[in-house]
């Protein structure tokens, strides 16, 4: 049994005075694609932002490659090899596509080169001089994922990468996630759409009220449909 790449134990987090996470516990093994499922407000995004150190008021334990990160600022956490793609994508309007792509510093060896990124997202190559926010929603999502592949980070946190995208673009993102997994990336995915999640993930953690309440291996997803409907209220 290999040691988990990410080990989260009894994670609590607060936004100001509101206590959002109430003891989140889960593991991600190297090379896995794992999703966080749950209703709006269950704490999925907050969990990601706590791992990344963006939510600063947090308690518990988050170990990455055996190293405790709970006391580190987000820039130090990124330097360990974790990269974040936010739900709102975070494309910078004052930077062109190339500058956006080159912005995140390389923190480790082994990241994709620009050619590798253009191999996944050929559209970006045509638009290097465009202002970042002039791209279509799908292209912005590709840019937001593409730019963190350069950095050499081994754990990617993708917050709702398919939200608001056309089905064909969603398929492209799904295929990309599969290719990244094949290349050895470990991915934590927040998804509202569990049908999409089922096509890419190895395991699913279900969150409710700031806790992980269940874990469903992808193979058992069909059999767990009834349960899942209850959790997600769909």
């Amino acid at each position: 049994m290999s040691e988990p790449l990410l080990r989260v134990r009894d994670l609590h987090a607060w936004y100001g005075e509101s206590h959002i996470l109430h003891g989140v516990t889960f593991d991600i093994d190297p090379g896995e694609v794992v999703t966080l499922l749950g209703r709006n407000g269950a704490g999925k995004t907050t969990t990601m932002k706590s791992i990344m150190g963006i939510v600063t008021r947090r308690r518990g334990s988050i170990q990455f490659q055996g190293r405790e990160t709970i006391g580190l600022p987000s820039n130090a956490i990124a330097r360990l090899g974790i990269a974040f793609c936010p739900e709102e994508r975070g494309i910078f309007a004052s930077l062109n596509v190339q500058e956006n792509l080159l912005l995140p510093p390389v923190v480790r060896e082994g990241g994709l080169g620009l050619d590798g990124i253009f191999g996944l997202f050929p559209n970006l190559k045509e638009r290097l001089r465009s202002q970042g926010t002039k791209l279509s929603g799908g292209e912005q999502q590709m840019l937001a994922i593409g730019r963190i592949l350069r950095t050499g980070a081994r754990l990617l946190l993708l917050d709702e990468p398919t939200e608001g995208l056309a089905p064909v673009v969603r398929e492209h993102i799904g295929a990309t996630i599969a290719r990244l997994k094949a290349q050895g990336f470990t991915i934590l995915l927040v998804e509202q759409n569990f049908r999409f999640a089922a096509t890419v993930a190895d395991r699913h953690y279900v969150m409710e009220y700031g806790r992980v309440v269940d874990m469903i291996p992808n193979a058992q997803l069909e059999a767990s449909m009834g349960k899942l409907h209850d959790y997600l209220g769909v």
Binding site: A78, F84, G90, L102
Partner: peptide, 23 residues
């Protein structure tokens, strides 16, 4: 490049920091 950090951090310092830059 340095200027692109500055412009990006002017827009969204939290995200730039989460990329590993000491904002």
């Amino acid at each position: 490049k340095l200027g692109s950090y500055l412009r990006a951090a002017t827009e969204n310092p939290t995200l730039v920091r989460a990329f590993g830059i000491n904002v």
